[in-house]
Design a binder for these strands. Structure first.
Lengths: 117, 117
DNA sequence: GGTAGATATTGATGTTTGTCGATGTCTAGG
DNA sequence: CCTAGACATCGACAAACATCAATATCTACC
């Protein structure tokens, strides 16, 4: 992997010091915000939580669809947002698609927010 | 304090188990999301960070305005969002208004997100 | 290879959000 | 009181977003 300079949101979160420790640069803030936006939605929060709490730490889309009163495309959309943010990993097995929480990204994000102690 | 049943976002975050430990209820997710929405914006992230990193842990609005290429009403709006979410405390002294990070809320929020370890 | 089921993509629509200029409300001094 | 400065509120607008119905793309199986 390893592109050139521009870090992904997840990479940025992993390497920068806590929010409250020193002032964020504009650039850093702009890279982190998308990650937070991704989880700043009740449906996506529940999706993340459902996936994480599921057996084996992963869940099939078909399981997730049933947990909501929303259309299948809407759930698919939210999963895509979480996946593209780097918070959910995808793996296709047969006809089914399984999602799994990218725990490290969540942990790093938490450290960034609460890092002050 | 202590209203009746309905918890504020900050109270909800303080008392519920981590995202990845057990599936969030719809109600809990709806109460937490506003908190995350509040910090899911690059300007508000920097505001939070600037306030926290400032001398004495608090900053005057006048200082904050100068740190951005945005109009004064816009900064005032973002501060209001952070304040209403319970992430910034306000105190007026003379003509000036000072904001201070509500550290506990941030810490609890971090625990909620990264709680899995 | 045709069909059924699982998931993704597309296009449209209503709502939310970030931003600004204009204006309002305080407070301290003159 | 009247003015100047600090901050908040209001109204308007454009961009971003959540949602859906319709449709497309896979994959397994018959």
């Amino acid at each position: 992997m390893s592109k050139s300079l521009p870090l992904t949101p997840v990479q940025t979160v992993a390497c920068c010091s806590p929010l409250v420790a020193s002032a964020l640069t504009e650039e850093t803030a702009e890279r982190i915000a998308p990650l937070l936006k991704a989880i700043a939605d009740p449906v996506r929060l529940r999706l993340l939580s459902l996936v994480a709490a599921h057996d084996g730490g992963e869940a099939c889309v078909c399981d997730l669809n049933d947990a909501f009163d929303l259309s299948q495309p809407t759930i698919s959309h939210h999963l895509k947002v979480l996946h593209e943010a780097g918070l959910l990993d995808r793996s296709k097995r047969g006809v089914w698609v399984y999602y799994r929480v990218h725990q490290e990204a969540l942990t790093d994000l938490a450290a960034l927010i609460g890092g002050g102690r």
